[in-house]
Write a protein that binds this DNA or RNA. Sequence first.
RNA 1: GGGCCCAUAGCUCAGUCGGUUAGAGCGGCCGGCUCAUAACCGGUUGGUCCCAGGUUCGAGCCCUGGUGGGCCUACCA
Length: 692
Amino acid sequence: MANKVLVTAALTYANGPAHLGHVLEAIQTDVYVRARRMMGDEVIFMWADDTHGTPIQIRALREGIDPEQLIARVYDEHVKAYDGFQIGYDIFYTTHSEENRKHAAAIFEALRERGDIEERDVEQLYSEVDQMFLPDRMVQGTCPVCKTPDQDGDSCESCGSTYRPTELIEPRSVISGDTPVLRSSEHLFVPLARHEAFLREWLKPVSDGGTTILQDSVRNFVLSWVDGGLRDWDISREAPYFGIEIPGYPGKYFYVWFDAPIGYIAATEKWCELHGQDLQDWWKAPPGRGDGQTEIVHVIGKDIVYFHCLFWPAMLHAAGYTVPSRVQVHGWLKVNGEKMSKRRGTFILANTYLEHADPAYLRYYLAARLSSNQDDFDLAMDDFVARVNADLVGKAANLASRSIKFINSKLGGTLGPIPEDGVPVIDAVREKLLEVPDLYRNFDSAKALRLAMEMAETCDAYINEHAPWKVIKTDPERARAILTVGVQVSKMVGAVLQPVIPEWGEKIGRMLKLEQPLTFANAAEPLAEGLELGAYETLAERLQSATLDALIEASKADVAADRAVGAAPEDAPSFAYEVEPLAPEVGIEALGQIDLRVGKIVECEPVPKAKKLLRLTVDLGPLGQRNVFSGISQSYAPEQLLGKHVVMFANLKPRTMRFGVSEGMIMAAGQSDDKVTVIELDPRSLPGDKIS
RNA sequence: GGGCCCAUAGCUCAGUCGGUUAGAGCGGCCGGCUCAUAACCGGUUGGUCCCAGGUUCGAGCCCUGGUGGGCCUACCA
């Protein structure tokens, strides 16, 4: 009987587009799901957007739209990205749904009936102007420890210290700038310590009679929290809060982390409704890996272990739902050795990748390096190229290519028998294939793919040794037999690659006229002698490093565009000021009308009786000198500008002013007249040179 | 401040219970082959196993202390 397996990737937070960090997790999860299906397990992949909470409100506020509009737009972006990467989820749902409301209420009610909900007053900052309690992220002020201004309400990015928003010096509302006051309100708490016994049981390793599979480091980590004493968990937030209102407590909402994981259940319920399945079989069955049991597997990043290994199992247990059988934790994605960060420009969006490169490359590279550890993953672009080309193209694709093309072009396209000296090759490869399911089951795709490459290598050596391109001249049937080994092995290699590159398996299936989709079990079945092969289909083409260069460039542009909208990513500083909204979009031809040149300031003097003008003489090299009046005297003393290379708007129609004729403009940035900064160029630039 | 995890060849990683001379793939270099997508084959290069102590007949592995990186947490640890 098939094992029931419910797999989830972490819900994607709906305050922005998916980036390669999300993709890493999605691919790891998808490979696992596809591999387990190839083992014959009954697997569903339940996924959703996480749509509630303060960061969503802030983002919507910044963009000037409703949270509902934001999450609807982001939902479409996420689905497009994940579909593009061929993530084979069964449903991608949302926590902003009736199902989520229902199950959040049910779990809350169950906790309440057990006496696991406590009411307690909490003092918090309240803004009279905004008429709301301000969550940590909505307050800024001066750090009480190091006195750095403009820090968030929970921690200081300058000195790294954490504190409560009430400790901030000169706190103010991010929304209105209003100074909030202290006010107390009633919050709801779950005393987690009451679930300590259950949690210890849940955390028990399989080797010790437990049922939960956790990486050792994760288990130790979680146990250290339990040993340290479990704190009460504040699960309520005051209105206005974008989330689910708590039944029986008007004006109070579930903290986003209460209802977020419930999205796994909501997604399952929706999927059950669409597919005539019973939710009970999935979320009300005993946990485990046997008949009539359900194995729930969560794939998450190491930042959210706390929620998935403490609160979540406790909530499920208390409310009578199926608890997780496995939580698989991965590390962060880094790019070229740096932590992925918009500020450093190594932030690659999923959809940007898809515009430049085939998802198969990234799927392969990530899978080829992902194992069951939770180390950070460094996406080094040169290694990416080398690995894909050496393994995927040079080994796996090459074996199928040389075998199938040879038979098709020179031997009439039909297979022969497996020759006697090919049997040990097939046996050796099959033996490796037998190890593969367990490797995938343990999230060790790196080793599975290593084996696939060894399989191809073994067979390649066999073909080289027997040189069918020579043998064919004297004994074509012998050549056919040798290459039949290559085709047979390509089938087995294809099975190992299929979870990672689904279309690889499909192409192998068409070329070898397979009647059933490839599985680990049927991959070793011998191909019939006399089988007529289909036309060769290219399995993988070489990855060019220029492709990735273009991707990096495009990502830099993404960041700039995102900044311009004022849409701060999670790791970017919040803005304590406003800028003018962007002008309407124009085509590139608009730039052609404006002629910008390098100018060198050779003279600079104040203008008597003018409030903010300086008179400049700007040298444009071969184009001669220009007289320019510029309104920057409140920000610059004349001598500060002398000799600087600046950006000159050179074909601006001369304008007669009260003090003389101005023959152009120099470019400067700034919010007000006394905070202007002139755009300075590298002094190596040549006066008169065109800027484009 | 406390805690947990990680560190082995230029890169990605194996390394079992402590057991001989620390391995593989990729890359680099030299040579060969040509059916195959600059692919493939043979040879070769390459290591202070992060550092310093300790235990031991013997340490990449065990213990202590440190360094670097990642993460969590904080007047309680």
